[in-house]
């Protein structure tokens, strides 16, 4: 039946064009993997900022650590714990770049493929805890009070 052939041809064409447009728009598996790593970087920076914010700062009056490792974070805010893999880049295994700006302010930076996209794609929205993310530098800067 000619109609059946035409319908199947139409289905094939519509599906093929839609799939190609989809891949062209969001990129292939490599782009997806890059997005995934960027999302992890963004989440890690947000978690680090949350840990450094130190919810009990009024009581503990903490001083920001000089360097960022598990020991110093634990000592910093009354034994607060953080996962070890949060402190390093999941793709390169290089620790994030932490800078103590002064007694109350810090910045944590990562090298992103597309920091702006990572910020847009993040589930939890923008960072809280007195921290802001700058997609141009790939850094979260925050203060503890």
């Amino acid at each position: 039946m000619v109609t059946s052939r035409a319908f199947n041809l139409g289905v094939s064409a519509a599906v093929s064009v839609a799939i190609l447009l989809g891949i062209f728009t969001i990129g292939g598996p490599n782009a997806a993997r890059r997005d995934m790593f960027d999302l992890r970087r963004y989440e890690n920076l947000t978690q680090i900022a949350a840990a450094l914010h130190c919810a009990n700062w009024r009581i503990l009056q903490p001083q920001l650590p000089e360097k960022l490792d598990l020991e110093s974070i634990r000592a910093y805010c009354g034994g607060i714990e953080i996962q070890a893999d949060v402190l390093v880049d999941n793709e390169t295994n290089v620790p994030y770049d932490y800078t103590r700006l002064n007694e109350t302010a810090f910045s944590v930076c990562a090298v992103f493929y597309d920091a702006e996209k990572a910020m847009r794609l993040n589930y939890q929205g923008y960072p809280r805890w007195n921290a802001t993310f700058n997609p141009d530098t790939g850094c979260i800067t925050g203060r503890i009070r």
Partner: peptide
């Protein structure tokens, strides 16, 4: 704000489904 992420995930899921379902139908 999370529409881009949801749309991207929906798009990937749709591509995966179509790659399997459309040839099966045809």
């Amino acid at each position: 704000p999370d529409l881009e992420l949801r749309a991207t995930m929906r798009l990937r899921w749709a591509i995966a489904t179509l790659v399997v379902a459309a040839p099966v139908y045809l």
